[in-house]
Simulated scan of single mutants.
Amino acid sequence: MKIRIAVISRMEREGGGSFQYGASLLEALAKLPKDQYEICFWYNSAALDGFVEKLPYLHAKPKWYFVQLLRVVMKIARVANKILKSDRIKDWLEFDALIRAARAWKPDICISLEQSYNPLSKNIRVIGPVHDLMHRYESSFPEVGAPAEYEAREKLFSRHARNAAAVLVDSNVGKQQLIESYGISADKVHILPFVASPLLVESTSPPQSFAGDHDPFIFYPAQFWPHKNHMAIIQALSLLPSDLPLHCVFAGTTDKNAFGPVRNAVRDAGLENRVHILGYVPDADVVWFYKNAFALVMPTFFGPTNIPPLEAMQYGCPVIVSGIYGMPERYGDAALYINPKNPGEIAHAISRIASEPGLRQRLISNGYAQVAKWTKEDFQKKILEVVTSVSSSLVRP
């Protein structure tokens, strides 16, 4: 009898790295042995339709047409929760269409593609990721450290650590943080390093949103959260020598709370003609930016690791990234590392790539080699290993 695996996702494309990681995980699950596993995928984002069609082994069950109604209902539920001082209503409604459908299928294992998951029931083995615990390690940022957000993350991750059959993390640092934060058994934590997104597609044409001559430019694809630290790049641009008038491209949804301050900082620095804020950028355009950028600059405060540096390396773009948490472990000698609190270091790293003979090409070559150390096939083998481990603990009739 085949083992039934229910895969669940409520990812939206605007979810950034979580969405890209989920796609990699889904692609890997589609490679599981067909004679041993039956996989059914419930999801609520139409953005995944085209990708899912390329994975015929998966039995896809799209529920995205419920999304708009569900969002309205959830808003009402949040108000009711505040009045009743209880999460009971929200917990009952959340993920309702997906959870109920998956439960009726009676799976043996449930795999969530993102860390905001909802276990089906106690007798179903759950596998899911914990991307970061930055609410504990970088709690000064309100997007994770505000009291309500901190409490919600603690509740989620402590429950996951306690109940999950397997937890997926990106690095040794991520594993150690999870163990020391929640006392989880080390054998339940599996290191599954990120890979470049399978959703990226190549384009040879410059994006319409970036018309004109803006070479050379640095690139940073990130949503406008304070921890993404766009401000440091703006300050670094002002410190560059006059003979290095780089442009800068920011790509990411503009509905987050750092967008207004970043836009104002660009204006105050007199950089409106050099800093280009494009908003959400399609996957094909992202590849074009990687292939044509002077460098990826990512002075984030969050880790342990991130996906954009791997994507940049895959497409021959030099990388400047924060030297914190698991970044040096993951990117090795394929990146220049900076202190995200120091715009001067960012400016110096940019200047080095421009002025040091051979440095840019060396970073590009090292990037290709670094990506080759952990491939999509390695990622898929590790998923099989994790699922096999969890499957072995099942009690079958």
Rank of each mutant, 00 (worst) to 15 (best):
V52H: 03
E53T: 03
E53W: 05
E53Y: 07
K54M: 09
K54S: 11
K54C: 09
L55P: 04
Y57T: 14
Y57K: 15
L58I: 05
H59A: 14
K61Q: 14
K63I: 00
K63M: 12
W64T: 02
Y65C: 11
Y65N: 09
V67K: 08
V67P: 01
Q68W: 13
L69Q: 08
L70E: 11
L70G: 05
R71G: 03
R71M: 09
V72N: 13
V72T: 10
M74G: 00
M74Q: 07
M74D: 01
M74L: 10
K75N: 01
K75P: 00
A77R: 00
R78F: 06
V79P: 00
A80T: 04
N81G: 01
N81Q: 02
I83T: 01
L84I: 04
L84F: 10
K85E: 03
K85P: 02
K85N: 13
D87C: 01
I89N: 01
K90H: 05
D91Y: 10
E94F: 02
E94K: 04
E94A: 04
F95L: 12
F95G: 15
D96Q: 11
A97I: 06
I99G: 06
R100N: 06
A102E: 05
A102S: 12
A102I: 03
R103K: 15
R103S: 15
A104L: 11
W105Y: 14
W105N: 03
P107K: 01
P107L: 01
P107M: 02
P107S: 05
P107I: 00
D108C: 04
I109F: 12
C110K: 07
S112F: 15
L113R: 08
Q115W: 13
Q115H: 15
S116T: 13
S116H: 09
N118Y: 15
N118R: 14
P119K: 09
S121D: 13
S121A: 13
N123A: 09
N123S: 14
I127R: 03
I127D: 00
G128M: 10
G128H: 05
P129D: 10
V130N: 11
V130Y: 06
V130R: 08
H131L: 07
D132T: 09
L133M: 05
L133F: 10
L133E: 02
M134F: 13
M134V: 02
H135D: 13
